[in-house]
Design a protein around this nucleic acid. Structure first.
Length: 199
DNA sequence: GTACTGATATGCT
DNA sequence: GCATATCAGTACC
């Protein structure tokens, strides 16, 4: 059975959501089957106080629009002209914030993920390739076939959703490590915030 | 394992 | 024009 995260889950504080997402399952439902990963790394971004957030300080543009919606939808954007990043929008409407999904461990659909990432079957991957299928935000989006067509997508929908139980797999999170976020050296004091979670 | 480099498109000054 | 919530490849150790 599959237990999707409830609407209330996404309305909690961003850092609570970021922390609670560790161990949850990200499901990408495609015509060929489900691609499923256990979320292992997240980062919180809080628009009103966080210079690293695209919506700082309360900056509402076409790009940041999803961040201003109520929690529970996807914010997908392009970085460095090449890679997509998936965020889970959190908290209520008009409070721009989200959780970046930075990495996942494959649970199901590794074959599909291998084709998406490397254009070849899982069995033909090197050990190195197998271990890095979705261990970064850009890699995860490639593996899960996530691009801007999923921007604004309802995360309780059919194409992309989050759950804490997926057919016998149950959320497990032991100790969760907090650390500084990655790739935001421009963000002054916000660099120091311990808003990255791993577990 | 770390260090460096180049590729690339979009959103904003 | 310029900066960017990244990655793969290479060269090391």
């Amino acid at each position: 059975m599959v237990q999707k995260l409830t609407p209330d889950f996404y309305l909690q504080g961003t850092l609570t959501v970021a922390r609670s997402l560790i161990g949850c399952f990200l499901v990408r439902r495609t015509e060929q089957g489900d691609i499923v990963g256990r979320i292992s790394e997240t980062e919180g971004y809080i628009g009103l106080v966080d210079k690293a957030c695209h919506a700082y300080p309360d900056k509402r543009t076409m790009r940041t629009e999803p961040l201003f919606h109520a929690g529970g939808i996807a914010y997908v954007y392009l970085v460095y002209g090449m890679y997509h990043c998936l965020n889970v929008v959190s908290e209520g409407p008009d409070i721009p914030c989200a959780v970046l999904i930075r990495g996942a461990e494959m649970v199901k659909g590794a074959e599909l993920a291998a084709v998406n990432r490397y254009g070849k079957g899982y069995e033909t991957l090197s050990k190195r390739e197998r271990e890095h299928l979705a261990d970064g935000p850009g890699k995860l989006c490639r593996a899960f076939d996530i691009d801007k067509t999923l921007n604004f997508e309802d995360l309780r929908g059919e194409r992309l959703f989050l759950c804490d139980t997926y057919h016998g797999h149950i959320r497990q999170a032991g100790r969760i490590e907090e650390s500084r976020r990655i790739g935001i050296d421009y963000a002054e004091e916000a660099r120091e915030f311990l808003w990255r979670f791993r577990g």
